[in-house]
Nucleic acid binder design. Structure first.
Lengths: 245, 245
DNA sequence: CTTTCCTAATCTGCATACAGTATACAGATG
DNA sequence: CATCTGTATACTGTATGCAGATTAGGAAAG
């Protein structure tokens, strides 16, 4: 330990190191994928992306590797990178895992009740309801994500947070297009969940969260059955020739 | 489909594409970390690794990124890569997540019973017991890992498999040194688990697995409390000067 | 002797260059 | 006309080079 301690309480936030290019490329590409500007199955040519984003191939490659491990793109060695095209059963499986992890988050959160945390949750509930009333889909999705994230944060388990974060961003991707249907119902469940957490009702919190996410999952399944398919997705999966000059 | 089929039954095994260098570097480094040849907290200098493994820095960098997302090394932008040094509470959290995911695996597996799968599980149980009898720690750890992996595989949920695989390899890393203590007890529980899966006892399978992994977790906690610390770990975390010529 | 500042050397981040491989198109062959 | 084969080309994988950032170590000052 250094002889003299530095007052730890000051703006302990260290100056932000320059964010590596690969991180920013990662973010940019994630957004391009979520917004469907890069379509599922599309071939991602490194040099093209490099030119598009104004950087060299190196940071592009690094970002692609990260996107690969996060499940956003599929990397086929010696072949290329393709935007991941989630199969319906994969989405279902993802939601199943989410259900389990979030349920555990709720259980843990309820054992660490904390008025400050509960306040935050209630505020998010209010925001969500408000967004719902004014038909603001985007705001609703955001509030929903933030609520779930907060519950996980309150669980106090960092590892859990990491995993749930990974899953949630992908769930959001799959979901955004099929505009969240179960509006009021969903937010009523959220409110119940917060109540259970507040009173330290571990079993209740876990059960409610589990039921909640399972219902979401079933809503998704139903949507898939009914809505035949958004588009059959040409599922390109083949290398594309750029300039056939 | 092409008009004329090629006799599909012949040695249909396609020639293995050259495994990218980054993959092999990843494997090599993971092994070096598990075997403690690269100590926790140690600074990993790209050029050094490149020389050591006989490749250029590029594949090293890519492998480091992957190792980072998998939790094996910590990457500090502009600063360097360091072998991850798990804090005790992190290990505990990891085991908690493992407990939940594996329990769910067992539940799902029990709903998809299948004699072939049960046979494989039983065989692994036998192997484990045998290894235990002849005091073969390595074999025991391997059988244990393989058993858990198989249960997850039988769950039929690919996403779950991915996550559990990630967790398990890290759990193995943390565990190998503290030589698995709860020997017979652990394998008795495994046998019970397989029985439950065989008879399609979903709740039982889930419960047994949960209790099993929770017990493992508690065994770890106890070990941590008793064994003060392996070594206080200098926690180097500082860049090292290579050739102070 | 302690603290501060400066300097030098190392290391990372990013760009570019090169080689090998897979693909698509065109021409050849039956 | 259909199918096969050869060749040009584009893309990935790997290596190397360069600039800026960051730290360790030591000199200078209190």
């Amino acid at each position: 330990m250094p002889p003299r301690e530095l007052p730890q309480q000051m703006g302990a936030r260290r100056i932000d190191r320059p964010v590596p290019l690969r991180e920013r490329v990662y973010q940019a590409m994630q957004e391009l994928i979520i917004s469907r500007q890069l379509a599922p199955g599309q071939h991602l040519v490194e040099s093209e992306l490099a030119e598009m984003l104004g950087v060299s191939r190196q940071p592009i490659r690094e970002a692609l590797q990260l996107l690969n491990t996060a499940g956003w793109v599929d990397l086929q060695p010696g072949y290329g990178a393709f935007v991941h095209a989630p199969a319906p059963e994969e989405v279902d499986q993802l939601l199943a895992v989410r259900a389990v992890l979030e349920s555990e988050s709720a259980r843990l959160a309820s054992t660490l009740v904390d008025t400050e945390g509960v306040d935050r949750l209630r505020k998010l509930c209010a925001e969500g309801e408000a967004a719902l009333d004014e038909d603001n889909t985007e705001g609703m999705v955001a509030a929903n994500a933030e609520l779930h994230r907060t519950v996980t944060e309150l669980s106090g388990n960092k590892v859990l947070m990491d995993f749930v974060a990974q899953i949630d961003s992908r769930v959001q991707w799959y979901f955004t297009p099929i505009a969240h249907v179960r509006g009021h119902e969903s937010w009523r469940e959220h409110a119940e969940l917060v109540d259970a957490i507040e009173r330290g009702d571990t079993e209740g919190a876990g059960r409610i969260m589990r039921e909640h996410t399972e219902r979401t999952r079933r809503a998704y399944q139903k949507q898939v059955e009914e809505g035949p398919e958004e588009e059959p997705q040409p599922q390109v999966r083949s290398r594309r020739r750029r300039t056939a000059r």
